[in-house]
Design a protein around this nucleic acid. Structure first.
Length: 718
DNA sequence: GCGGCGCTCGTAAGG
DNA sequence: TCCTTACGAGCG
């Protein structure tokens, strides 16, 4: 699988606290005179190797060419400056004199790549901490790759690496981000730091960093006054972790060390013992990582995932304000309601028990009341195969006893309180929240968010039917809608741009079923259709009369509709069969943008495992492709805001098929129009909170596009 | 004996 | 169906 056409990324790093780094016979001592223990740790170097195969060299070189044109031009138009602390010594830039600082800035202009690593207070770094360290950031180490010659002579076998990790022209420096010294000195240091960073960001030379998102976010947090989010959005970052995840989204890479383990300790190509790895394995001080991205993933990596890093970093630095008073009030109201429900439940059950415990509830419902005797085929739990107490089961038991209904309401209210109200409060600092976005947390290519999980915030309001919460006020209906707890900044509005039935559309396209595609061209039918599709069980027979009634069409038309519906099923079945077949042959499936998911169990003996893998394969193609499109939309809309001199709209969340923005009221029209034009109207843009005060922008849908436009769109992405 | 910690399980929200 | 996060109970 990993042949010479692979793009190679090579990284050298220091895995002990020892303040020097070695590289094969060339072991270079770093006298970190200006650094403290923890700061000495890190030297990273990551270098892209030039491709060897002529047939793909064009492709692999693209990033290099694209990103270094400007610096390349500059490089030959001026004399390289000599920075005193040349190369091997990570000098603290605060110790530099005025001239030396200028020299440093000149050096930066000539760089072809930067490799950065954050160092934390506790002495750990981005390379040896398990995950985003909770410890605060102390400083940043930067390696400036400054070679004017070609990085590596081409080699013609996968074993013939020429590791050219350290170049004489490379510079290494360090700057603090924490406040420690007296104010004036601090300001001076801060100034040079952000000048350096400014230079790094705007020169469009790749910044290579493990966990690059955390790095960029920190920059925005520390230098937020000096460096704008649009500047950060403009830089070029590379993150080996993302690359590893693209190669196989299933294996998690918790740390840089794991990355090395996976891509270095193992032989690169089967059968041949790499002489370089053999040598290097013996070098106990440093390790190397080499990971590879197939050509097929390169485009996805560069056009989608890398730009996303910056977008997520910017999103994480945006403050989403929360209505604190409302939060407190609703928490109390919900708490009261829970108490009431608890009491009611105890009364009807005839005993006290813990309502939140499914075990205890099971005892009451089935051991004591024997309700399962009166109802057939109740769903069971996954592992222990006990009768479930899930919503579905409770709904079935509703008419047999008053308890299930009480439990259902209790659960609803409890979920609301614990997750959306109290949970949100624990994520808050000073009246606002910022989610953490994980780009490599899913196997399907989706994003995930946590603290709080903004993607999981309930859409639907809960209404409390009980009264007398507030004395004297006979309020008997209170509705609580979690999304309204978020408040936009003054003079701004939350706007949501969302795809409509994205996965179904993708299925239509992938199964290339004309009947199905046609359905999307009739907007009125679309909704009903999708409702039917989601509700319709294969067993549940749909009569043409009922459908005719439902759609307001004649039974003849209805039966035609049903036929096309069944036709769709047939085509979809063919699609799933084809997908599974491909997966069996290749061992993996791909999405429309080339995202991969290997499925080891696809050829398993075990029926259960095999069929699960089959479902996963089909699901991946659809869900993964949808994720591709949504990410693409994100990148495009974000970019259009970044290049606009006027727009200030902030992307604040992605809820899979929906993008949430905070837009200045005066810019709503302009923003909507731009979002719309960028995506050929695939999005509808409307106010986020679904209390739907007014529709801001009426969209054109996919369905209203011509076939040609649809193809343009899809081809653009493919 | 008790509380903290980490784990699995069940449930339910998002898509 | 599948894939996420979050929460609480219960166990060791």
């Amino acid at each position: 699988m990993l042949g010479c056409q692979d793009i190679k990324m090579v990284s050298c790093y220091q895995d002990s606290g020892f303040p020097k780094w070695g590289y094969r016979e060339r072991s270079l001592s770093v006298e970190a005179k200006n650094l403290k223990n923890g700061e000495k740790k890190i030297v990273t170097l990551l270098k892209r190797k030039q491709n060897v195969s002529t047939s793909c060299s064009e492709k692999t070189r693209r990033l290099h060419v694209n990103t270094s044109v400007s610096s390349h031009e500059r490089r030959y138009s001026c004399t390289p400056g000599q920075v005193k602390s040349s190369g091997r010594y990570p000098c603290d830039i605060s110790s530099l004199g005025c001239e030396e600082r200028n020299e440093l800035l000149v050096t930066l202009e000539q760089a072809v790549a930067f490799v950065t690593t954050m160092v934390f207070q506790d002495g750990s770094s981005q390379l040896n901490s398990e995950q985003a360290s909770t410890s605060s950031v102390k400083g940043v180490v930067v390696l400036v790759k400054n070679q004017t010659d070609h990085p590596c002579p081409p080699s013609h076998t996968s074993t013939g690496y020429t590791w050219n990790a350290a170049n004489e022209n490379d510079k290494l420096f360090y700057f603090k981000t924490e406040q420690s010294s007296p104010w004036e000195q601090e300001q001076a240091h801060k100034k040079i730091s952000w000048q350096v960073l400014f230079q790094m960001l705007q020169c469009k030379v790749p910044i290579i960093c493990f966990n690059a998102k955390d790095f960029l976010r920190t920059l925005l947090q520390v230098y937020g006054d000096e460096i704008s989010w649009k500047q950060v959005a403009d830089c070029v970052v590379l993150d080996p972790r993302i690359a590893a995840w693209l190669i196989n989204p299933s294996d998690t890479v918790p740390s840089f060390e794991c990355l090395i383990q996976k891509y270095f300790e193992k032989p690169f190509s089967k059968g041949t013992e790499n002489t370089d790895t053999g040598t290097l394995r013996n070098v106990s001080v440093s390790s190397l990582v080499c990971f590879k991205i197939k050509i097929s993933l390169w485009n996805l990596f560069c056009t989608l995932e890398l730009p996303l890093i910056k977008i997520l970093a910017v999103m994480e630095t945006h403050k989403i304000y929360v209505n604190k008073q409302e939060l407190k009030k609703t928490s109390e109201i919900l708490g009261l309601r829970l108490k009431e429900l608890e009491q009611e439940a105890h009364e009807v059950a005839g005993e006290r028990f813990l309502l939140t415990s499914s075990c205890q509830l099971r005892e009451v419902l089935f051991d004591k009341l024997k309700l399962h005797m009166l109802c057939e085929k109740l769903h069971r739990t996954e592992i222990q195969q006990l009768v479930s107490t899930s919503e579905v089961v409770l709904n079935k038991l509703q008419d047999l006893h008053p308890l299930p209904k009480i439990i259902l309401e209790y659960r609803q209210v409890h979920k609301m309180k614990s997750t959306y109200v109290d949970g949100l409060r624990t994520c808050m600092k000073k009246g606002f929240i910022s989610s953490t976005w994980n780009q490599t947390g899913t196997v399907t290519g989706r994003l995930s968010s946590k603290h709080p999980n903004i993607q999981g915030i309930s859409k639907h309001p809960v209404t409390l039917t009980k009264k007398q919460y507030i004395k004297g006020k006979e309020e008997d209906i209170v509705t609580i809608s979690p999304r309204t707890l978020f408040v936009s900044k003054k003079g701004c509005t939350f706007l949501a741009a969302d795809f409509s039935h994205i996965e179904l559309r993708i299925l239509a396209d992938l199964s290339s079923e004309p009947e199905l595609l046609k359905l999307f061209q009739e907007p009125e039918i679309t909704d009903i259709f999708s409702t039917l599709a989601s509700q319709q069980n294969s067993k549940n027979n749909l009569s043409k009369e009922r459908l005719a009634d439902c759609l307001g069409i004649t039974p003849v038309q209805a039966s035609q509709f049903i036929e096309s519906f069944m036709q769709k099923y047939k085509k979809v079945h063919e699609f799933t069969k084809k997908t599974i077949e491909q997966c069996r042959n290749k061992g993996y499936v791909v999405s429309i943008m080339g995202r991969k998911r290997p499925l080891a169990n696809i050829n398993a003996q075990d029926y259960k495992l095999r069929t699960q893998a089959e479902r996963q394969a089909v699901n991946f193609v659809v869900q993964g492709s949808a994720a591709d499109l949504c990410k693409m939309a994100m990148v495009k809309i974000f970019a259009s805001v970044v290049i606009s001199p006027t727009l200030t709209a902030r992307l604040i969340a992605q809820i899979h098929d929906e993008l949430l923005f905070e837009v200045e009221d005066s810019q709503i029209e302009e923003f909507s129009a731009r979002a719309h034009s960028r995506l050929l109207g695939l999005f509808s843009v409307k106010q986020w909170i679904y209390s739907c005060r007014h529709q801001v922008f009426i969209h054109k849908l996919w369905s209203s596009l011509t076939k040609a436009q649809q193809y343009v769109w899809l081809n653009q992405l493919a």
